[in-house]
Simulated scan of single mutants.
Amino acid sequence: MRYSYEFKRKAIELFYQGEWPKTPNGVRTDTFHNLIRDWVKLEGLPGSDINKCRRTNKYWSPEENYELVCQVLSGQGLKAVAIVAGINCGQLYQWVYKYKTLGCNGLMNKPKG
């Protein structure tokens, strides 16, 4: 589910006031609260637009993939690296897994299609 920037801002303001917005239907409360905590962490990073939705998907070059994988393998937390990069944790996990199992060649191959 995508949330508007205005909704995220309101949820963050409520969080700082010690309150939670109403959990949307079909979403577990604990999952929703964790998402709001992630938004709060993102607000602390440089760039005021970090919680805004991107209208298009970003293409990640093999070199950019490798750089993020190296950050994780050097000891930085996977979730922290993903948040700073603005990608899904699952996507970064797959890149790390592919690198560990197939090596650099598996990560550098472009997907077909």
Score class of each variant (00 low, 15 high):
Leu68Ile: 04
Leu78Met: 14
Leu68Phe: 07
Tyr3Thr: 06
Asn105Trp: 00
Asn25Tyr: 14
His33Trp: 10
Asn51His: 09
Gln17Ser: 11
Gln91Gly: 01
Arg9Phe: 04
Glu63Leu: 10
Glu64Arg: 14
Trp20Val: 05
Phe15Asp: 13
Asp38Phe: 08
Arg37Cys: 03
Lys110Ala: 10
Cys89Trp: 05
Glu6Lys: 05
Leu14Lys: 13
Cys104Asp: 09
Tyr66Val: 04
Lys98Cys: 03
Gln94Gly: 01
Leu14Met: 14
Cys89Ile: 14
Leu73Ser: 02
Lys10Trp: 00
Glu63His: 08
Gln91Glu: 11
Tyr99Cys: 13
Asp49Arg: 01
Trp95His: 12
Lys41Tyr: 02
Val69Asp: 01
Lys100Gln: 15
Lys98Phe: 09
Arg9Asn: 01
Ser74Tyr: 00
Lys22Ile: 15
Ser74Lys: 09
Asn105Gly: 06
Cys104Arg: 11
Lys98Gln: 04
Arg55Thr: 10
Glu19Asp: 15
His33Gly: 09
Gln94Arg: 15
Arg54Cys: 13
Lys10Pro: 00
Tyr66Met: 14
Gly26Phe: 03
Ala11Gln: 09
Arg55Trp: 02
Val69Cys: 07
Met108Leu: 10
Gly47His: 11
Ile36Ser: 08
Ile83Arg: 02
Thr56Leu: 10
Pro21Ser: 02
Glu67Thr: 06
Thr31Glu: 06
Leu45Glu: 12
Gly77Trp: 04
Ser61Leu: 04
Tyr3Pro: 03
Tyr93Ile: 08
Val40Leu: 10
Asn51Ser: 05
Glu64Asn: 05
Tyr59Arg: 07
Pro24His: 10
Cys53Met: 12
Phe15Leu: 15
Glu43Asn: 12
Lys10Arg: 11
Lys22Gly: 01
Phe32Arg: 09
Val27Glu: 03
Leu14Gln: 15
Lys98Ile: 13
Lys22Asn: 11
Leu92Pro: 10
Asp49Ile: 09
Pro46Trp: 01
Lys8Pro: 03
Leu68Gly: 03
Arg28Pro: 04
Gly75Ile: 08
Val72His: 07
Glu6Asp: 14
Glu13Gln: 12
Glu67Asp: 06
Thr23Tyr: 05
Gln17Thr: 05
Arg28Asn: 13
Trp95Val: 14
Ser74Glu: 06
Phe7Arg: 02
Val84Thr: 14
Val81Tyr: 00
Ile83Leu: 07
Leu78Phe: 03
Glu64Thr: 07
Ile83Glu: 06
Lys112Ala: 14
Thr101Ala: 02
Trp39Cys: 05
Thr31Asn: 12
Lys8Trp: 11
Gly47Ala: 05
Asp38Ser: 11
Tyr66Gly: 08
Asn105Gln: 05
Asn51Val: 03
Lys10Phe: 05
Asn25Asp: 15
Pro62Phe: 10
Val96Arg: 12
Val40Pro: 09
Gly77Gln: 04
Glu43Thr: 11
Lys100Asn: 14
Arg28Ala: 15
Phe32Lys: 13
Trp95Asn: 11
Cys53Pro: 00
Gln71Pro: 03
Arg55Asn: 13
Gly113Lys: 11
Val69Ala: 08
Gln71Lys: 15
Leu68Trp: 10
Lys41His: 02
Val40Ala: 06
Phe7Tyr: 03
Gln94Tyr: 02
Asn105Pro: 13
